[in-house]
Design a protein around this nucleic acid. Structure first.
Length: 509
DNA sequence: CCTGACTGCCC
DNA sequence: ATTCTGC
DNA sequence: GCAGAATGGGCAGTCAGG
């Protein structure tokens, strides 16, 4: 097949370009393989004439999507929206924006683009802001809810092959890139998907994808489990791929891989969301000369709020309801929801700088070779344990859960404790390496089945008896820590720390 | 039942 | 966790 | 030098198929 040659060449070139983030070609303009199915000649169905322009006009000099690259107040959300107010946001709008981002290397430019996407959605279809934010952050649910896609490259190759009527081996061959005498998996499955789609003859045009549709399909994929779940997941994916056009397949695949690799990740999304609401509110408050939130101030607020309430399902609606400035009031820290690790540090004030430069006094802690854990103890006595990345680990550590009542002092009715859980040999009273800990069972563990004993080392406390300590100095938190718990041999210790000006003591980690 | 392929999450 | 990149 | 993004090794859990 001659078409395959073309496709492969495109893929290899693009894969290399993507590997070194320099000199990348526009994925939108680079695709000769896609040219045959140009949108210019396509009065195929009624939908096209009714809904019309969901794609930029190649003929005119102005590409509407370039509007998204404008900065701050130069950007007009109205001009960027190519759908009617209140209608579902087309997925193509989002995919095109990602394509634009993929051609940028600087984070500022990337932030601007995704910010403009949010502003456009806020202006035209605010109901779709939540799924838009979720897709941008490449998430389908808050981390502590434990909802997973359960999809990897292998399943995607299968789905892709079926959806586009290709042989699986064929797809796999395209994925490989020759590197000297070796064959490596350097290819990009997303690009394979895009190329496969565009080289495929499409007989009828399916209903076009919306952001909400894609997002909800992702959730549906995650929900499938048990017997034949793989078939069901694959069918969901196929339904998306079949309905996808232009660069949509590329980003559907990459979202499902959780590997966007275009320089857009969660931090940037948070910043952009803050900036977007700042600009949107400026416009809204233009007549009533309310105070204008500087966009980076708004970004800080969003970051802050997300760190104590990592749940877009709560943040985004609140943002639309009350605006950025009052967001902190609407979204508070709550027990049972894991706190992001960033805020667990003292405020950057004079003391920190003094410590750094004068070296008079500083605190260093032993680096325990275990697993980070955030223990929440609720007023009703229930307990949750979260990992470093806010995954729910309660079912992995029933022994830790049961030991809490022993090391917690009676007067303590609630807390959030930052710890390191370490594999421990009780006979020899020795800490075991991470390798040992990692062999422990992870789900639904029951006390009597535990093979690898564990010891908890607490190094910080973020909340105690109804009082958040997130904004307190380390010293204060440390005092609270020491007076709220008791060490329990082999089960619970305070992390060893040294506060001094002696550099030599810093060696032992 | 058991085995292998696959996936996600820890560092 | 480490490595790489833009600022 | 810093912050954010991308990437790697090694493990248990899940599912499909013999």
């Amino acid at each position: 097949m001659s078409s395959d040659r073309t496709v492969t060449d495109v893929l290899m070139g693009a894969a290399r370009a993507a590997a070194t983030k320099k000199n990348r070609l526009s994925s939108a303009s680079q695709s000769p393989a896609q040219a045959p199915s140009s949108p210019a000649k396509k009065p195929k169905t009624l939908e096209d004439s009714v809904v019309s322009s969901d794609e930029p006009k190649k003929s005119g000099a102005t590409d509407p999507f370039l509007e998204l690259k404008k900065k701050g107040s130069d950007f007009d959300p109205r001009a960027a929206a190519n759908w009617k107010d209140g209608e579902p946001v087309p997925f193509l709008f989002f995919a095109r924006a990602l394509d634009l981002i993929s051609n940028e290397s600087g984070r500022i430019a990337i932030t601007d683009i995704i910010c403009n996407v949010f502003r456009t959605v806020m202006a035209a279809t605010p109901d779709d802001l939540l799924p838009t934010v979720y897709l941008s952050a490449n998430r389908i649910a808050p981390p502590h809810e434990g909802i997973e896609l359960g999809i990897g490259d292998a399943s995607l190759v299968k789905a892709l092959a079926e959806a586009y009527g290709r042989k699986e081996e064929h797809v796999n061959k395209q994925l490989q890139v020759e590197c000297g005498s070796m064959w490596q998996e350097l290819g990009d499955l997303g690009l394979v998907a895009k190329a496969s789609r565009s080289s495929q003859r499409v007989l009828y045009k399916p209903q076009r994808l919306t952001i909400a549709k894609v997002f909800h399909t992702f959730r549906a994929i995650a929900k499938e489990s048990g017997k034949d779940s793989q078939d069901k997941k694959r069918n969901h994916i196929k339904s998306l791929l079949v309905a996808a056009n232009d660069c949509e397949p590329l980003y559907i695949i990459r979202l499902l891989q959780s590997k966007m690799r275009i320089g857009l990740a969660e931090k940037t999304v948070l910043v952009a969301l803050g900036q977007a609401s700042a600009y949107t509110e400026v416009l809204r408050a233009a007549s009533s000369k309310a105070q204008v939130p500087p966009s980076d101030e708004a970004a800080k607020i969003i970051k802050q709020v997300y760190s104590v309430l990592p749940d877009y399902g709560k943040i985004v609606p609140a943002l639309l309801r009350v605006g950025v400035l009052k967001l902190s009031e609407a979204c508070n820290f709550s027990l049972g929801v894991p706190v992001g690790p960033m805020l667990a540090k003292p405020t950057k004030s004079v003391s920190e700088i003094l410590d750094k430069f004068q070296g008079i006094e500083f605190t260093c802690e032993y680096k325990y070779d275990g697993e980070r854990a955030q223990i929440h103890y609720m007023e009703d006595g229930s307990i949750e344990i979260y990992s470093r990345n806010a995954e729910r680990n309660t079912g992995k550590y029933p022994d830790v859960v049961s030991s809490v009542s022993r090391f917690k002092r009676p007067a303590v009715s609630s807390f959030v404790l930052d710890c390191e859980i370490v594999a421990y040999d009780r006979e020899k009273k020795k800490i075991l390496p991470f390798q040992v800990l990692s062999t422990r069972a992870r789900k639904g563990v029951i006390l009597s089945d535990i093979k690898v004993a564990v010891c908890t080392f607490a190094f910080d406390i973020l909340y105690i008896n109804g009082r958040p300590l997130l904004h307190e100095q380390l010293k204060v938190r440390r005092e609270e820590l020491y007076k709220s718990f008791d060490e329990e041999p082999g089960e619970f210790y305070f992390a060893t720390s040294i506060t001094s000006n002696d550099l030599k003591k810093y060696r032992s980690s």
